[in-house]
Design a protein around this nucleic acid. Sequence first.
DNA 1: CATACATACCGTATAAATCCCGTATTTTAT
DNA 2: ATAAAATACGGGATTTATACGGTATGTATG
Lengths: 214, 214
Amino acid sequence: MKIKIGIVDDHQLFLKSLALMLNSFDNCEVILDALSGAELQQKLTAPNQEQPDIMLLDVNMPGTDGVVTAKWLHTNYPAIKVSALSMNDSDKSIISMLQAGCCAYLLKDMNPTDLETALEEIYKKGYYNADASNINFRRLIIAKQEEEKLNITEKEQRFLQYACSDMTYKQIAGEMNLSERTIDGYREALFAKLNVQSRVGLAMEAIRRGIVRI
Amino acid sequence: MKIKIGIVDDHQLFLKSLALMLNSFDNCEVILDALSGAELQQKLTAPNQEQPDIMLLDVNMPGTDGVVTAKWLHTNYPAIKVSALSMNDSDKSIISMLQAGCCAYLLKDMNPTDLETALEEIYKKGYYNADASNINFRRLIIAKQEEEKLNITEKEQRFLQYACSDMTYKQIAGEMNLSERTIDGYREALFAKLNVQSRVGLAMEAIRRGIVRI
DNA sequence: CATACATACCGTATAAATCCCGTATTTTAT
DNA sequence: ATAAAATACGGGATTTATACGGTATGTATG
């Protein structure tokens, strides 16, 4: 009995060629593939669809991303072992993926033999921890916690978005329907939280930490 | 006689599985693969190394990147038809790759059948233009030219780097061993070139356009 | 009820950023 | 050789940003 595998990745070429590779392994068999989280949900909920043992999930996808899809799978198909499959180890969402119910985090630059080993281990033990791959989990967990304990409020978040623009504080205040003094307070609070001394520093930190996207 | 293909991509899993896929095509044969531009140079210059007809080159690689490698191939192995193979069409380096001598720009989310067609066309005609894929060349060329005609000097570039930090202009002036007035001039020039009104706007534009990395 | 806490706000002082005026030197082009 | 352009710098005016001290209000909590 081969290990039944599902793959989700938005890059068709990678998706199909990885499927080929997995099928070439003695004990693997790709029974499901999808180009997006939405397509996966559609296919998996279809009648007579066989359930995979392991689901390989790309993290960075347009639309329903890896984290959302992982949570959905973990909730609706707890029997499927979900593993993230990402480009780089600096990916901030490693912890998010593990928290979302992934039992492994595999990298796209691993070699095929290791992948085969990993899949077998996930199938048998239910998890796989790539000590070999230099993912520093401790550092990542700390970084995530630091980010969470910042506790940026919705208003601050909204202000931060405006602060990362060409607008003056007066204009921002007008846009947010608040007094200049009020957003003054937001600024001070954020300066302290992000440990900066100027608006440029604030904007840079917000972008660096991914709090604001430009 | 099969088309001889070389692949360069830093993600081992993609590299190896794509090789598998290409080998499964009737008229293709992967005779060379490498995880980096440096490895390619090493392998290609080795004695008795067969030369591929087509080289598929990943654009985003650490170390010797796609553009550099493409130029090297174009200079030293002009007979090899080089094609870029990238993640996304928003990639600014499309034009750079074509200027570096690539005869095609393929996307990783194309489907296998189209890839086979593209490779045959590159082999026969020497080039491939994916009208089907929605790469807007005109827009890209214009964007590149706009960027080039900005003509940002080295000093301005250096100032821009400092401007994207928590430092005051006084501190920047000190760091660059220039008067405050002088960097004042840089600021004004950059405001005009990037069409912004404030330092935050300047920093944002610099990052958005990839002039400064953070 | 009293207390704490977050939110929204005001005045004012100082520092920084922005803008406008002008000049001297060096580089580049004709 | 000389004009044009780029580079570096200065004084000073105005606007914006930053810092600090204090107030009022609603909400939650012991």
